Simulated assay, not measured.
Amino acid sequence: MQGVQFLLAISLAFTFASASDPSPLQDFCVALKDAKNDAVFVNGKFCKDPKLVTPEDFFFSGLNVPGNTSNRLGSKVTSVNVEQIPGLNTLGVSLARIDYAPYGLNSPLIHHRATGILVLLQGTLYVGFVTSNPDNRLISKVLYPGDVFVFPAGLIHFHFNIGKTNAVAITGLSSQNPGVITIADSVFGSNPLINPDVLSKAFKLDKNLVTQLQSRL
């Protein structure tokens, strides 16, 4: 009986293992940016001929340059994903530099394809994420230089500079193209706009306020 249970456990382990993402079958797959317009791909991008790959395919310069935070949110994200480094294709990682003016905000957002890990280099940030329904629990923390915080994939999260000086952070992401859904922009700034009656009822807001928010975003 114990032998049968052991074999069943081994079988289940291999079943779960085979259900995970497959490992790449090549050293790298540098993305092609000039594939034909009628080409179709499901995940990642088409691969460049390995014999034509150069060091520049794996290189990005300029992350030391502060981002321009003179915008309505007072923050700037400088992404370094597969669009900037073609060699990241199929490797499952990317990163970003985030600059914050005093009281600058990286507005509540979702990375639907990636977990994020943030390290604060300068300033003071109030960060957090909200767990899924039905709890909707806020997990938050004030960060200081050298502190690290993790944001689980697919959960709403935010970063807010609560200091009187600029702040700088680096975020690592577990996807070559993590995707971004900014909550306010998506809900109140969609194209075309969502019917104000829908948002008025959902957020328990006066319809006129909803239309004002839509006009601003």
Rank of each mutant, 00 (worst) to 15 (best):
T90S: 08
T182E: 02
N71I: 13
I85D: 01
L91Y: 07
K164F: 13
F58A: 04
V82D: 03
P50N: 03
F16D: 03
G128Q: 02
A17P: 08
A96G: 03
D34H: 06
G163S: 13
L125F: 11
Y126P: 00
G3M: 14
S132K: 14
G3I: 14
V42H: 10
S70N: 14
N166C: 11
L209Y: 12
I183W: 07
V30K: 02
I183L: 11
P178R: 07
T211Q: 13
K45M: 09
F14N: 08
F60K: 14
E83I: 08
S200V: 09
F16T: 14
S94L: 13
P192Y: 10
K36N: 06
D99E: 04
M1E: 15
P192G: 06
T90C: 08
R97Q: 09
N106K: 10
S140L: 06
Q84Y: 01
T15C: 13
T165P: 04
Y103T: 06
G128W: 04
P192E: 15
R137P: 10
E83N: 13
Q84R: 12
F16L: 14
H157L: 06
S200I: 05
D21L: 14
S70W: 09
V40E: 11
N64G: 00
G123L: 09
L120N: 04
I156V: 08
R137W: 14
Y126W: 09
K141E: 04
L121V: 02
S11M: 11
F14L: 15
P145Q: 04
Y126D: 03
